[in-house]
Computed example of a mutant assay.
Amino acid sequence: MAIEILILGAGQEVGKSCVVVTINGKRIMFDCGMHMGETDHRRYPDFRRISHSGDFNNALSCVIITHFHLDHVGALPYFTEVCGYSGPIYMTQYPTKALSPLMLEDYRKVMVDRRGEEEQFTSDHIVECMKKVIALDLRQTVQVDEDLQIRPYYAGHVIGAAMFYAKVGDAEMVYTGDYNMTPDRHLGAAQIDRLRLDLLITE
C-alpha cells in the first residue's frame, strides 16, 4: 500500500481547497478552489506541482468536487478550459452540479464587470467545464476505472455537500471537505458508514 499527499491549497490557510492524493498509483484531486482574498497568481492552486509539463490528463485519474462554494470549486473552469484538463470530474447531482455554474458566473460578473479585474475564465468556459462533470447520487458507488472506486456521503454542510470515499486495491480513504455534525432547520448532520480507513483528510 502506498499513499502520498500533495496539498495545493487550504493547508494552513482558509480557502483554495485542493488536495491531490496518490493512492496505490491513482492520483485524485479533491476540490479545485480559489482563494477569495488574493488577486494575483496566489488565487489559484499551483497546478504546475501536479505536472511540470502541463499534461494534467495523464497526471490525474479524476477530480472530485465536494460542494459548490468557491473556495472548493472556484478554480475548476480555469483548470479545465485554460490549463486543459479534460478527464473525469465528479460531484453530486442536482445541488452541486446545478449551483456551481451559478456561483462561478456570479463571481465572474462581480470581479470582471464590476471591479474591472482581468478575466480568468469566461461564461463559455463555465458552460464547457460543467459539460465535463459526471453527476453522482449520495451513496452511489462508481468505478472510475478498473482499480479506482469512489462513493459520496452526505456531509450536511450545505445542500449537495458530500464527503468522498475512495478505494484502490487494499487502500481506503475519505476526504470530508466541509461537513457539519449539528443538524439545523434546513440540513441534517453528516452521515457516513463505519469504515476502516488508511487515510482521513478533514476540514
Rank of each mutant, 00 (worst) to 15 (best):
I3V: 15
I5C: 10
I5A: 06
I5V: 14
I5T: 13
I5P: 03
I5G: 04
L6T: 08
L6S: 01
L6R: 05
L8F: 10
G9W: 05
G9V: 06
G9E: 05
G11F: 10
Q12S: 13
V14D: 13
V14N: 08
C18Y: 01
V19Y: 03
V20K: 07
V20S: 06
V21I: 12
I23Q: 11
I23Y: 06
I23K: 12
K26N: 09
R27Q: 13
R27W: 05
R27S: 12
I28A: 08
M29L: 14
D31W: 03
D31Q: 13
C32R: 01
M34H: 00
M34N: 03
E38C: 09
T39S: 07
D40W: 12
H41Y: 06
H41E: 14
H41C: 03
D46Y: 13
H52L: 13
H52G: 08
H52V: 06
H52E: 15
H52W: 02
S53I: 14
N58D: 14
L60D: 13
V63W: 04
I64Y: 10
T66Y: 02
T66F: 01
T66Q: 12
H67P: 08
H72C: 09
V73M: 09
A75D: 07
L76D: 07
Y78V: 01
E81I: 00
G84F: 12
G84D: 09
S86E: 12
S86N: 15
Y90K: 02
Q93D: 11
Y94V: 02
Y94S: 05
A98M: 05
L99F: 11
L104W: 04
D106L: 08
D106S: 15
R108M: 04
R108L: 03
K109P: 01
V110K: 09
M111I: 09
G116C: 10
E117L: 15
E118A: 13
E119K: 05
E119H: 08
Q120T: 14
Q120G: 04
Q120N: 07
Q120M: 12
F121W: 12
S123T: 11
S123M: 13
H125R: 06
E128M: 11
M130T: 11
K132E: 04
I134H: 13
A135Q: 09
L136K: 09
D137W: 06
R139A: 14
Q140K: 14
T141F: 01
T141R: 14
V142G: 01
Q143L: 08
V144F: 11
D145V: 05
D145Y: 12
D147I: 01
L148N: 03
L148P: 04
Q149C: 13
I150D: 02
I150A: 02
P152Q: 07
Y153K: 00
Y153F: 15
Y154P: 03
A155Y: 00
G156F: 02
H157K: 07
G160Q: 00
G160F: 01
G160S: 00
G160T: 00
M163A: 10
F164V: 05
A166S: 06
G169T: 01
G169P: 00
D170L: 04
E172H: 00
M173G: 02
V174Q: 04
V174A: 01
Y175G: 00
T176F: 05
Y179L: 09
D184M: 00
L187F: 08
G188H: 01
I192C: 11
D193F: 07
D193V: 09
L195H: 06
L197H: 11
D198S: 08
L199F: 08
L200W: 06
L200D: 07
L200Y: 02
